[in-house]
């Protein structure tokens, strides 16, 4: 594998944004995701390859480490920041259609709930794994999810909630989405959510960590 791609993957895994970034200490003074992505493109590496063999590789490692409690939210956010810095260079190739995404994932924190840390983490991870993410924000009502899935055919829907009192809205939203688009797949997650709850409300997937969702999506492309 291209040495540059391996380095890019490392930058994502360890959250090295650019050369000036002090974090992580062991990579101080080295080029970050920003510089290395530019270099790779300049050397003629295909954008698709940078995404698949560089960024996604790093992101997957972070996802696994997060699941295994080896890193926590702050580290994941650093990785995501490195990722989005790299993505700026790739943006034109997405727009031109040269880089293909696996599918579309619609995500939002459910009605009544304004918490977005979990939702943002998931959307970063999913995006970092080659999906187009449509982020509806927080306090999202059933109609908004329905409108979004009608607009993005074959998209997967993800519902996030932090509050025990708002997670119950997931049931209503799941029903509305499935009524509007029979066969639509709905994934749920958030601190109070469990797989038992997922079964109870008739949603399709639950994962206690973002990587689990990524795996579910990838398995259902």
């Amino acid at each position: 594998m291209n040495d540059l791609l391996r380095k890019i993957a490392d930058c994502i895994e360890f959250g090295k944004i650019n050369k000036a970034a002090p974090y992580p200490p062991q990579m101080k003074g080295q080029d970050g995701a920003d510089e290395l992505t530019r270099q790779a493109l300049d050397e003629g590496v295909k954008a698709q390859e940078i995404l698949t063999s560089g960024l996604m590789v790093g992101m997957e490692k972070v996802g696994i480490k997060f699941r295994e409690n080896k890193v926590f939210v702050p580290q994941v956010l650093m990785s995501a920041k490195a990722m989005s810095t790299a993505m700026i260079h790739l943006k034109p190739y997405f727009l031109s259609g040269e880089v293909k995404q696996k599918g579309t994932f619609i995500i939002g924190t459910v009605e009544g709930d304004l918490h977005d840390i979990g939702k943002n983490l998931v959307s970063m991870m999913v995006e970092g794994n080659g999906w187009k993410v449509v982020d509806l924000g927080t306090d999202v009502k059933a109609e908004q999810f329905v409108a979004a899935i009608k607009e993005h055919e074959n998209a997967f829907v993800g519902l996030s909630a932090l509050l025990t009192t708002t997670m119950v809205n997931m049931e209503k939203i799941t029903k509305a989405v499935k009524e509007a688009v029979p066969g639509a797949k709905v994934a749920v997650g958030g601190a109070p959510v469990t797989d038992d709850f997922r079964k109870k409300i008739g949603a399709d997937a639950y994962s206690s960590d973002p990587q689990g969702l990524v795996e579910y999506l990838n398995a259902n492309v």
Binding site: P74, M78, D116, N120
Partner: peptide, 10 residues
């Protein structure tokens, strides 16, 4: 806000 998480390092 969530900036605090990255500022832990930065």
């Amino acid at each position: 806000g969530t900036d605090i998480f990255m500022k832990l390092f930065e």
